[in-house]
Design a protein around this nucleic acid. Structure first.
Length: 276
DNA sequence: GCGACAG
DNA sequence: ATCTTGTCGC
């Protein structure tokens, strides 16, 4: 009865933390996404044409600082081309899962689906069900070609677009090369470069969305849209660096937290005296 | 051993 | 994601 209970490997205590504390759950999640991936469509698969684009959704989740479970989820529907907000679903949520790089969908997608399903079943507002949803996170620009935008699109069966502010570096993609090419080739708003991996895969586009933007946004296919159509839609909806549906969802959810979040235990645990 | 790692 | 002031320009 010695104390060498886990000696399957000879030297396994020189790594960072534990050896992948999420290894089990990751394997499970990969299987789930592999299954969903069979339903993913990366060509134009919509009944409308661009000049019939009217209702566009944007989703985002904002977080409370120093707090791992309280957050605010928001679904915005904009009318194009007026850009008026015609529908808003916003409220606090309780996060249950951590952020694990490459697995953002599992942390956020259930809350996004709740909002979409609420709209789908709303007798008054279901007319505003968006024709396409812009997602704060990548689409196929992802280690397993299935980012949050893809995951949400398949579950909701709605066309989606992934919009990221930082890219995954995979398949030979490299942030320095991307920035160099971007700086060289993208001078005006609307200019973009394709992100082509070593394998020849076109993962996304780095888009100069606004004339004053130094950094690109990374636009990748989510579901049911070609990259070309995806980019055309993003360009139509961009007034600032971040496309308006996502920008509005972000602004609204941040405001909501600032105005409505009440800490349960204020940082006043020291003084219980001196009230007169 | 080292770098990368959406939000 | 969040922490933060100013600053440059239209």
């Amino acid at each position: 009865m010695a104390d060498n209970t886990n000696n399957n490997n000879i030297n396994n205590n020189n790594n960072k933390d534990e050896d992948d504390e999420f290894k089990e759950i990751k394997e499970e999640w990969i299987q789930i996404q592999n299954s969903l991936k069979q339903q993913l469509i990366l060509t134009d698969n919509v009944t409308w044409s661009l000049n019939e684009l009217r209702y566009i959704g944007g989703v985002d989740i904002s977080f409370v600082k120093d707090n791992n479970e309280d957050a605010c989820a928001c679904l915005i529907v904009l009318e194009y081309p007026s850009m008026n907000i015609v529908y808003k679903d916003i409220g606090f949520i309780k996060l249950t899962l951590p952020y694990i790089p490459g697995f953002l969908a599992f942390r956020e997608v259930t809350f996004l689906m709740e909002m979409i399903n609420r709209l789908k079943s709303d007798p008054v507002n279901s007319q505003y069900l968006p024709q396409v949803i812009l997602v704060d996170g990548n689409g196929i620009l992802h280690p397993r070609s299935f980012g949050l935008a893809c995951h949400l699109g398949v579950l909701a069966d709605i066309p989606t677009i992934g919009v990221g502010k930082t890219p995954f570096q995979q398949d030979g993609l490299n942030i320095k090369d991307i920035r160099d090419q971007f700086k060289k080739n993208c001078q005006n708003a609307g200019d973009f470069i394709h992100l082509v991996g070593t394998s020849g895969t076109i993962w996304a586009a780095a888009l100069k969305s606004h004339k004053d933007s130094t950094n690109p946004i990374y636009v990748s296919q989510g579901h049911k849209l070609s990259l070309e159509t995806t980019l055309n839609i993003v360009k139509l909806l961009t007034l600032y660096r971040v496309p308006e549906p996502i920008r509005q969802a972000d602004l609204q959810s941040r405001d909501y937290i600032r105005l409505n979040f009440k800490p349960t235990t204020p940082p006043n645990t020291t003084t219980t005296t001196a009230n007169k």
